[in-house]
Every structure is written in structure tokens, then in C-alpha cells.
């Protein structure tokens, strides 16, 4: 009997998972497959880029600076033992471009913007603002979901680029200004190692994929949250947990495809 119960529970979980993915797919389809409205859509998009992108900028830039500095400091103490401290540039730049830039930005984005999106949507749902749009013959998917999704998709790659740029600068500060690596050598070795297609384009691809996934999860969790305080707080937690796990798993997959 216990056995059957466990199997039933497993089945229920699987069904729920499939249903959730179906709902999320339908939501995104409804939001994105629309004739674009330039005049009415643009102000909504700008406002959401402000909420999602501009307001995440400070945390991303500050984190990028510190992570670049820490990376350089740790790298330096190891490299100096082999007399190869001039390779600090590629170490910092490549770690940031290939992994830390897109991944850490996505994690910060999930915590800062993703959870806010979920909470906002949950609140709009519980105060019947979404129903109210429906009754005013305005599609909430187009009015509410679509601009937020596009804003996430545009903002996160830009944030990743800022993260990496500031991180490399942080590495430069520690390596050159503090530890005294030769300025010219730092840049020339770095430039020889970093490549446009392999490193920068892949960084952008990763970051667009993460943006898609994190924004999608955040919007889905909010849009389908149980409309009460408990439901919203649970949805917000789920957004952060599921986005982070999805980003880390996808990062492994993408890294294997790109560099494996």
C-alpha cells in the first residue's frame, strides 16, 4: 500500500510538472506571438527596462568589480609561484567572459529583478488588476507579460557585458596598480588570449539564454501564483530557487557544447 502511494505521489508530481511547463509555454506564446504595437508598446517596454535593468545595474556593477578584484588577487598568489603572473589578464578575462559574467549576472538578476517581477505580478493578480485588464478587453499577456519579458531579454545581456567590463577593470586594478604587473604585458597577453567568436559571442549567447529562462520563470511564477500573501511569498522563493538551478544546469550544458 505504501509503495502504491509513493508511485501515485510520483505520478502526481510528474503530471504537475508537465502541466506547469504547458501553462508556462502557453503564457509565453500568448505574450510573444502578437502583432507588435510600436506606439503603445514602446513606453511600456522603456518603463520595464527601467525597473528590470536600470535598477539592477548598481548591484551588478559593484559585484563585477569585487569579483574581478578577488579573482585577480587569488590568481596572482598562485601564478606568482610559477613566475607566470603576467598570465593574470587572461585568467581574469576568460573566467569572467566564459563563466562568471553570464552566470553571476543571471543569479543576481534572479534575486533582484526576477523576484520583484514575481511579487509584482502576484500582487497584480491578488488585487484583481489582471482580471480587471481582461474585463477591459485588454490582453494582460500583451499588456503586462510581453513588455516585462522583452525588458528582461534586453537588459540581462547588457548587464552581463557591464559585469565583465567592470570585472576586467577590477582585475587590472589589483594586478597592475597594486601588484605591479607590467601594464603593457597585462593587456597584450590578455588580448592574445581572448577571442571574439569563442569568448565574447559565447558570453552573449549564454547571457541571452539565461535571460530568457530567468525572466520566463519569474513571470510564470507570478502569473500563476496563488493570489494571497502566502502564495506570493512562496512563488517568489520558487522563482529564485528554480531560476538559480536552471541557470547553473544550463551553464554546464552550454559550456559543454561551446568548449567541450
Amino acid at each position: 500500500m505504501h509503495m502504491i502511494d509513493s508511485i501515485t505521489a510520483l505520478g502526481a508530481r510528474a503530471i504537475n510538472l508537465v502541466r506547469g511547463m504547458g501553462q508556462a509555454g502557453i503564457m509565453l506564446w500568448g505574450a510573444l506571438v502578437q502583432v507588435p504595437r510600436v506606439k503603445k508598446g514602446t513606453p511600456l517596454l522603456i518603463k520595464q527596462i527601467y525597473v528590470v535593468g536600470v535598477q539592477s545595474m548598481i548591484i551588478v556593477v559593484v559585484s563585477g568589480l569585487f569579483i574581478g578584484m578577488v579573482l585577480a588577487l587569488q590568481g596572482y598568489t598562485i601564478l606568482v609561484d610559477f613566475g607566470t603572473e603576467q598570465s593574470l589578464g587572461p585568467l581574469v578575462a576568460l573566467s569572467l567572459l566564459r563563466e562568471l559574467g553570464p552566470v553571476v549576472t543571471a543569479l543576481l538578476f534572479a534575486g533582484r529583478a526576477g523576484s520583484a517581477l514575481t511579487a509584482e505580478l502576484g500582487l497584480m493578480k491578488s488585487t484583481e488588476q489582471l482580471s480587471s485588464l481582461e474585463m477591459m478587453a485588454v490582453d494582460p499577456l500583451r499588456q503586462v507579460i510581453a513588455p516585462r519579458f522583452w525588458a528582461g531579454l534586453i537588459s540581462m545581456p547588457l548587464l552581463s557585458l557591464m559585469f565583465v567590463a567592470v570585472g576586467v577593470y577590477g582585475g587590472y586594478l589589483v594586478g597592475v596598480s597594486w601588484k605591479g604587473i607590467d601594464d603593457g604585458a597585462f593587456w597584450s597577453i590578455l588580448q592574445a588570449a581572448v577571442e571574439w567568436r569563442q569568448d565574447i559571442v559565447n558570453c552573449l549567447i549564454k547571457s541571452v539564454v539565461f535571460a530568457w529562462v530567468v525572466t520566463w520563470i519569474s513571470l510564470y511564477r507570478g502569473y500563476h501564483s496563488t493570489p494571497n500573501p502566502e502564495g506570493i511569498s512562496r512563488a517568489t522563493t520558487q522563482t529564485v530557487v528554480q531560476s538559480s538551478l536552471a541557470v547553473l544546469a544550463l551553464d554546464f550544458l552550454l559550456t559543454a557544447l561551446m568548449f567541450g
Partner: peptide, 13 residues
């Protein structure tokens, strides 16, 4: 042609 007044008002915050 119809509209609804929600219990909470449902004004856009």
C-alpha cells in the same frame, strides 16, 4: 460593452 467594478477596486497601482 460591459465593465466590472471589482471588490478591491483593482486600480492599477
Amino acid at each position: 460593452r460591459m465593465s466590472m467594478l471589482f471588490q478591491s477596486g483593482a486600480l492599477f497601482t
